[in-house]
């Protein structure tokens, strides 16, 4: 098991109960959609995976390590197992495509040689060959998200975590990004993606966990709940 949640609840300091007694398991190699309306708790659940938020109650294990009991100093190592993809891409605007990806490797202490070798690989993987030296502002939204995905893959994570990665993209571009994520999943990386784009999920026939007001209302292995 890659991820285990046991009776996890999250109450924010302002009293909002974002998650209510969540239990779930995610296997290595799975592709999982987290679905639900805005405010259902998708982002909260995702943030717990990389320990940006801690649960108020319950236990979470990632790669057999307890998120709750983990020391502060161990958090960076946890996060190096994960590639995170953001809705707003979070690219550094003054850096080129290649530099943005190299940056992610640099900050975890990769050697220059590894960086020189890996950056072209992931640029190829996401189909951005020829755009290495472009600045983010010279790219379309879909291309920018490809850079975001390439950056997330640079350190060869066990899992890719994406919170509304297509939230800022049109339908056609979103479908292209989905194809890329399926491709990455086929090559062995676990993918966890939060979205409220029903259309995308429906076509995918992947596992879907439906959240509503902080509770799991449905967990279907091939998205049967959406038909």
């Amino acid at each position: 098991m890659l991820v285990q949640f046991y009776n996890v609840s999250k109450i924010y300091p302002n009293g909002v109960k974002a998650l209510d007694d969540i239990s779930l398991k995610i296997d290595r190699g799975e592709f999982l959609f987290l679905m639900g309306p805005s405010g259902a708790g998708k982002s909260t659940l995702i943030k717990m995976l990389f320990r940006e938020e801690l649960p108020t109650r319950g236990q979470i294990f990632v790669a057999s390590r307890s998120i709750v009991r983990m020391k502060r100093s161990e958090v960076p190592l946890l996060r190096r197992n994960m590639g995170i993809v953001f809705q707003d891409f979070k690219l550094l605007e003054n850096k080129t495509v290649a530099e943005n990806i190299a940056f992610a490797m640099k900050v975890v202490g990769a050697s220059n040689r590894d960086i020189r070798q890996r950056v072209p690989e992931v640029i190829n993987m996401v189909g951005l060959k020829g755009k290495e030296n472009c600045l983010p502002t010279e790219l379309s939204g879909g291309e920018q998200q490809r850079v975001g995905i390439a950056r997330a893959l640079a350190n060869q994570p066990l899992m890719l975590i994406a919170d509304e990665p297509t939230g800022n993209l049109d339908m056609e571009t979103s479908q292209e990004i989905m194809e890329l994520l399926f491709d990455i999943n086929r090559k062995g990386t676990t993918v966890i993606m939060a979205t409220h784009a029903r259309e995308l999920v429906k076509q995918a026939h992947k596992r879907v966990i439906m959240l509503e007001r902080g509770r799991i209302v449905n967990d279907t292995p091939h998205g049967e709940s959406l038909v």
Binding site: E52, R72, R79, I84, K90, L92, A104, G109
Partner: peptide
């Protein structure tokens, strides 16, 4: 600050 947040999520150590 944006860069720092990103670095933290990528897994940079505090000292880095």
């Amino acid at each position: 600050r944006k860069e720092i947040y990103l670095m933290k999520l990528i897994g940079a150590t505090d000292w880095f």
